[in-house]
Design a protein around this nucleic acid. Structure first.
Lengths: 102, 102
DNA sequence: GTATTATGCAACTAATGGGTTGCAGATAGC
DNA sequence: GCTATCTGCAACCCATTAGTTGCATAATAC
């Protein structure tokens, strides 16, 4: 399931920080993304690849550098899953309440 | 950040399946949760511990068995993070559009 | 009381992942 | 042209994790 891949991509402090950074200053080069993360550019590059595989980030080469952008709609599967789980969870709570009240 | 822990807990196909299962048939014992997952009970137990640590699942001993329940509100941090990211992302798109239109 | 069932704990293996370094290639600046 | 900059690729190390097995323990069933 691709959904697990999305959550997995978000399940790391560094990648979470990258995503947050991208919502503030976008687009960036790979080098500028890696600044301030406390890891090397290659380490950053690996994290970016994980985000790309999860369809959360887009990389487009531009001359000698690579532009990093957030993928529009990339968070949709995650949001929908959570909404669905909470809906089902609430239904169960309702059913339980109804059962108790009877 | 606890948020990364939540996403990390959801970032595994088996744990995702466990959560989905729990929204359907709840509460379950550990043994019944592990049925049909294709792994041993001990393997399941480890996954459950990850979910507990992420505050997504609750374990309460009941006699000789342990009842597995979803933790109400456990998905809240994840939902809020996604909402915030999408809000910021939309704002950036708006700003870009405005810039182009000028 | 005995057997069965549900679980916990610990040790172990195999695979994955985060991170690094070193080097090579291509583009931009001068 | 030459040099500096941005990046990719590959190998490697260390820590973590997914999963297993074996055994011990406690509660239920009969």
């Amino acid at each position: 399931m691709a959904l697990a891949e999305v959550f997995h991509a978000l399940g790391d402090p560094v990648r979470l920080e990258i995503v947050q950074k991208l919502t503030r200053s976008q687009p960036c080069t790979i080098a500028s993304v890696s600044e301030g993360l406390g890891i090397t550019r290659q380490g950053t590059r690996k994290h970016l690849q994980v985000l790309v595989n999860a369809n959360l980030v887009l990389l487009q080469p531009k001359g000698r550098e690579v532009i990093v952008e957030l993928q529009p709609g990339g968070l949709d599967p995650a949001r929908e899953f959570i909404a669905e789980m909470e809906r089902r969870w609430d239904r169960r709570l309702d059913a339980l309440r109804q059962f108790v009240e009877e």
